[in-house]
Amino acid sequence: MSEFANTIKDSLLEKFTKTSYELDGYGEHNFFMSQDEIHPAIEFLKNNGFIYLTDITGSHYPEKEGAEFQVVYHIHNLSENLRIRLKVDLSEKDVHVPSMTDLFAGANWMERETFDFFGIIFEGHPNLTRILNVDDMDYHPMKKEYALEDETRTDKDDTFFGR
């Protein structure tokens, strides 16, 4: 791990006490943040050279009680060439995270996409509406409870195929 990565890790862990860190087997830096600390943390990172927001996306883990949803941020420091990943676990009862649109203009559509597919509410977003799906859709299709195929079908045995 580079010296810079170490400094960033130490200061993030020190400044944001609810944070935990994991260096995964692929050499990527993962930080697990809490809902209320993610915005100041990304602001702190932005002021430390992480000026490129690579991606915001979500995942759904219905089996993990109290952490059914996860928002994943990839953020890149271009001058030190370090990319880190921040994750926020959300309970399905409270799917709110602060919006990053005030820090990065590009966060706008990334957050709209995550809202569209997972129903995660980004607080402070200027226009949190559906983006890829039709406006009158009343569910969030990337949730695991929505199977890809019609579940009422009886003519096909899926035991050996698909998830």
Binding site: F117, L132, N133, P141, M142, L148, E149, G162, R163
Partner: peptide, 14 residues
Amino acid sequence: VGYIHRAFEKLAER
């Protein structure tokens, strides 16, 4: 946008 959205991310899960 979204006129030719084909749900690739959902498709990929199967």
